[in-house]
Nucleic acid binder design. Sequence first.
RNA 1: GUGGCCGUAGCUCAGUUCGGUUAGAGCACCUGGUUGUGGUCCAGGGGGUCGGGGGUUCAAAUCCCCUCGGUCACCCCA
Length: 419
Amino acid sequence: MADPIYRAPKGTHDVLWPESARRRALVAVFADIVEAAGYTEVVPPMFEHVEVFRRLGDATDVVRKEMYEFEDRGGRHIALRPEQTASIVRSFGEHRPTLPWKAWYAGPNFRYERAQKGRFRQFDQVGIEALGPEDPHLDAEAIATAWRFYESLGLQQVTLLINSLGGPEDRANYIAALHGHFASDLGSLSEESRSTLATNPLRVLDSNRPEDADLIAAAPDMLDHLSADAAAHFDQVQAALTGLEIPFTIQPRLVRGLDYYVRTTFEFTSGAFDAAQNAIGGGGRYDGLAEAMGAPATPGVGFALGVDRTLMACDAEGAFEATSSTVDVFVVDTTGGEAALLITDELRRAGISADRAWDGRSMKSQMRAADRSGAAIAVIVGDDEAESGTASLRDLRGDAGQDTVQRSSITETLLARLK
RNA sequence: GUGGCCGUAGCUCAGUUCGGUUAGAGCACCUGGUUGUGGUCCAGGGGGUCGGGGGUUCAAAUCCCCUCGGUCACCCCA
């Protein structure tokens, strides 16, 4: 292997064609769906003042220990974004668009973590954020938008999990109840979970440790601690999803890692691939976040979907396969290359994609390149054609053979044949 | 941050157990067979500091130590 200096940094990788084309296509599908629902694109910066992300909560690991932070040359304390919701909400506070504001985004995020399957230090997400309405139908619309996106990709093994964390007070009550429960049998809890209990009690419910399983199973139910308001909101979200015929599973143990969520939370998991990281998307309500960021108090709901993990799910299901786009025409020129230069330029200006060979290779070599390019037709200029001011057009895919046309009519002839 | 497994040509791997002639295969790439014509076939060719460093030894891809990287899991999350 090459010197480590010349490798992509840990947890990052280059996306080469055709996978790069597939990713672009996936984002295009997402853009079509969300724009058809009235969402408009926002392109926030990839880094922000650290404080923007600190507002996400001190107990959030993403903020506490996973941020790429640095001081820039002007002494500003900057962090690469670990997620985009904070940036979008910051942008909302800065520009104060009219409500409701329905925004979508796509792009990379950065978290300093140990890489594993489906988890990288740079990873792409697509997502939406809707600020303004408290309407439970908006929660349902957001969920449905993600669901339709997965459907459009051809995914069939996606499961929707939903839960309600209640309002801030409900949450506090529930946390107190959790403390009581776990305190009753602290000794049987794993050491790690005991420390998690101190910093972020809800997340103990997320532990994957076998020794915690029994105690977690016996833990009080979050849904029993909802206020009448929150319970009604959650009921309406469920009714809306039922009306939309979107299947869901209520998962009272669903705790999401970002601390700003209140009321509705949801997560999409794939049953198609075997990995610990099977959550391919998630989101929820964050009614207090705008205010926490210094903007006018404004409710909001949104989600982020992991592009890498969604593509893993597609791989596992054989869905949304990469399409191999190729050029239409390949120009073979054994007379020095200037003919190829001029002909490819003429073809491209006429809307015909065209490539050629370089370095004055032999006819055989150039024909091999023509074949590999995937082009349907080869335009051949050898000594004979150069002398007579013509070009030979050879069918590379069918059995139409080869014929000769005047140089001046190459483009016109190809336009007709490529229809 | 913690632990398991793994690093040999561009790719997929053999060789490592029990150290020993110039380190191999398939695919890919290049050239030629075909003095202008690809996809099949045949022949030839280029390409490796065996991840890196140190050690043991007459001798290390092979044994030992360290290190870097990859991968999977925990933590956490998309």
